[in-house]
Amino acid sequence: MYDIEKFYQARSVADAVRALRADERAIVIAGGSDVLIEIRDGKLAGCSLVSIHGLAELEGVERTAEGEIVIRAGTSFSRIANDPILLRTVPMLAYAADQVGGPQIRNIGTIGGNVCNGVTSADSASSLWALNATLELTGGEGTRLVPIREFYTGPGKTVRRHDEILTAIRIARADYEGFGGCYLKYGKRNAMEIATLGCAAMVRLTPDQKAIAELRLAYGVAAPTPMRCTATEEAVRGAAITPELLDRIAQGALNEVKPRSSWRASREFRLQLVSEMSRRAVRQAIVNAGGEADV
């Protein structure tokens, strides 16, 4: 039995925004895989909920005429993991969605909830950072687009306003075409797991496939919010694929990340994973981009 004081099922996004404006205590619930846990814990006991669960306008994935990928925020992880458009264009993201929890959680949990929750361990977050995703927020004052790098303001905190709903996640054509990607999740078990570290690497190769035209390296749980190793990415632009390249990238990542010690994992252990996973993810991304990693 959940301690929910008030529950409103919105009929549309506009209706949800209106309901949120009418109740400043109200919080948004979609799949409920995070919110219900907090209610049960007592942290959100007696809460007022505005549900956007099941709104058709929030579900689905499409590719626009310009090649932009639009993922509606209410799309479940299992749908994302199996979506033909995503499997063709950004398979890394589909794979990342398949790493969340277990089958039941993936059936109910939504990618929008995963992002809005604002936690550094969210499985989709590092891939979305690597993909330079743009977040579409719809509120009382209309719709605005926020680049993902400006979305997170701290652990569990984002720029989303009380009356805003995340309606879509957009990925521009230039941010996926020509890239090979790889997401690695490190968990202490193979399912029902929160990431100890997540690493997403994307690589675009030079036409001769011998050098890095562009690298994107993103992490979850390597800092209080998901992050990109932008200095490292710049430093290896144009670098030839050599055995030393992976060492440079790993060291670059180590210089940029800011993991903390907690009872879940020490800083030293996370640093070891940052280093090793950068190598493995980048190596695989090079292969997925059509290159050869073992040169």
Partner: peptide
């Protein structure tokens, strides 16, 4: 034999070189 304990043991045994920021 949890992952962190293993890594610590392997570092101590010299099977992993300790890493960190420069």
């Amino acid at each position: 034999l949890s992952p962190q304990k293993l890594v610590e043991g392997f570092v101590q045994a010299g099977l992993i070189k300790e890493v960190g920021p420069n």
